[in-house]
Write a protein that binds this DNA or RNA. Structure first.
Lengths: 344, 344
DNA sequence: TCGGTTTAGTCAAACGGTTTACCGCTCGGC
DNA sequence: GCCGAGCGGTAAACCGTTTGACTAAACCGA
């Protein structure tokens, strides 16, 4: 199992290690006659030579590896697309990806950063599993790109979903369908996730732009993101008399939308005829499986993961926004849960 | 940004690089007096010294990195727990994890293996996202551990879920509750996944052991794993007259179980009173969100991921089964979708 | 014939650690 | 006074590759 080294190839080809290195890396390759180049290539192929990238990295100070560090890797199906995108971009550019999860523990995170630096990674993507400000536990090298989060202290290229714009698109869809009484079924977690406020802002903006005075009673909160809690939160709204009951629900996420479906069923309301519903996140297992399939706003995890890694590798320019934060659009995915309200 | 080297530390501490290396690695550390050791440690701390693991790996031939290679990393929430487990074990043992996905492309896979070997990884975990035999596209080094798959050619430590035993547990639960007419709602994909046959075998074994003659009419197939197709497949069963209708359904997976819920609702049957349902996979977003919550069999992804990585690192002994394959138990997760059948 | 240029390479020094072998000194025992 | 053993530590080789400096031989024009 002794791996073959450049010296073995040199011996086999009857040249020096320098020549092998030069030829194989195509540096000044034209300095060598075709015959020599062939001999080197043939010898390398025959011996199955693959350069030891440790030795190379030691010499060149570039390892062609990148690190992806994140709080929870993948405990939810949520953000795996970000990891996948990072891995895809890395592969496309001949890089290898170190994956490390910190489980939200600052000590672990600090260790992870040290370990990655000791590995001489060419760069680090610092990812969060949900859109929020972060305060890294250990100093990150210059050039670190923030994914689905941004440094509390400001600066640094970063990419997050444009939650406000996503809500705007969702509410505009409902308004265009003719809805006026639109409820926002928010999440009641404390502290409120950043996305909660941003989506609320977008909701309010569109209502005002449509000349609708927002009714605070139509802003309800589900204690958690479980369908059961969400159903409880929605029950109150759907129990209202028909002329005060909302005709459409904008849900903080798809799980809450699933709860809304349950509540609607319980109240004998048919979606979308009696009640239109829009979700957020576009979680495959929920949005496509609900009946009718859920119209929702997709979080652009894959696109964000790609962008972050491409910026890290320098193949995409960093954002020119003053704060260095790119807000990635959240596409509206229209399925079957929105229709015009019933004529009164 | 010039990283501090062992030489810097040596100069600061007034000793040679050799001494620093020996002291910091605790090798023969007792040969040096306490005072010297302190000086070295203090200097290292003051300078924030972290050894360059490339240089170390070059010399020691061990990199403390492992590679995890898999067909689809994470396209489904499915197997992310395997990745997470591998990452956890790696971290616990001071290793760093390379993650590479091949998207099922043999050329990409061969490249990935070469890249990992060039990185001098200490070992490789070869993972599949669903239980099946595999034929690696490039020769894998000795010691490679197979995760959720096993080499077609045989051999090699490998771990897969014990699908037969999982089905046995599920059907025993139903039989113990008093069910006799139990249907198996299989998946109709071609070729059939290995798990499909294994679970069927377990299903048949328990029926026979309970003295029930399996009724082939109760083995139906859903064209795909979507809830809609599953509902179609189940509709035929539930339309049967009450005395021939199954009182319980064993579903190939949770998505199919979700379809069964829809069909049951459509036929006015209440789960579990009129119809007991057991799923497979224990997908969080489905099993816990259904109403009532779904009793199901969990795939031990996390446990398998841990085991594979621990075997790779040599902290867990390889299986002594002749074929080198460990069949990991699939725990039965009892929720609310099973009850005794209605008295006839 | 001779100096200069091109051709076709090679040498040796890094890169930053680990490891083997050895060294100078002191001290105790005989 | 000599030997051997500990003590405290270092020098140098080595891991595999890249790279800047260098060179022997061939060629070439004057």
């Amino acid at each position: 199992m002794a791996r073959t080294t450049i010296t073995d190839v040199a011996r086999e080809a009857g040249v020096s290690a320098t020549t092998v290195s030069l030829v194989l890396n195509g540096r000044n390759a034209e300095r060598f006659p075709e015959a020599t180049r062939r001999r080197v290539h043939d010898a390398a192929a025959a011996l199955g030579y693959a350069p030891n990238v440790l030795a190379r990295g030691l010499r060149t100070q570039r390892t062609h590896t990148v690190g992806l560090i994140s709080d929870r890797i993948t405990t939810t199906p949520y953000a795996v697309a970000m990891v996948e995108a990072a891995q895809d971009v890395a592969r496309e550019h001949g890089r290898l990806l170190f994956l490390v999860g910190t489980d939200g523990d600052p000590a672990v995170e600090a260790d992870a950063v040290r370990a990655l630096l000791a590995q001489q990674v060419d760069g680090i993507v610092y990812a969060a599993m949900w859109h929020r400000p972060v305060a890294p536990a250990a100093p990150l090298p210059a050039g670190t790109v923030y994914l689905d989060c941004f440094p509390e202290a400001g600066g640094g290229p970063a990419v997050v979903p444009d939650d406000r714009a996503g809500a705007v698109a969702a509410i505009r869809l409902l308004v265009a369908a003719g809805h006026r009484r639109i409820a926002y079924v928010d999440i009641g977690e404390d502290p409120a996730p950043l996305a909660s406020g941003l989506r609320h802002t977008g909701y309010l903006d569109v209502l005002r732009e449509a000349g609708v005075t927002p009714d605070p009673a139509l802003h309800v909160r589900s204690a958690t993101a479980t369908a059961a809690d969400a159903a409880d939160a929605v029950d109150g709204l759907l129990a209202l008399p028909a002329d005060r009951r909302p005709t459409a629900l904008f849900c903080f996420n798809d799980r809450i939308a699933a709860g809304a479906y349950a509540s609607a069923r319980h109240h004998g309301l048919v979606i979308p005829e009696d009640l239109s519903v829009v979700g957020y996140d576009d979680q495959q297992l929920i949005a496509t499986e609900l009946d009718p399939p859920l119209t929702t706003v997709a979080l652009p995890h894959y696109a964000m993961g790609r962008w972050a890694t491409e910026v890290l590798l320098g193949v995409t320019p960093p954002p020119d926004a003053a704060d260095g934060v790119l807000r990635m659009p959240c596409p509206l995915v229209e399925r079957g849960s929105v229709s015009p309200p019933r004529a009164p």
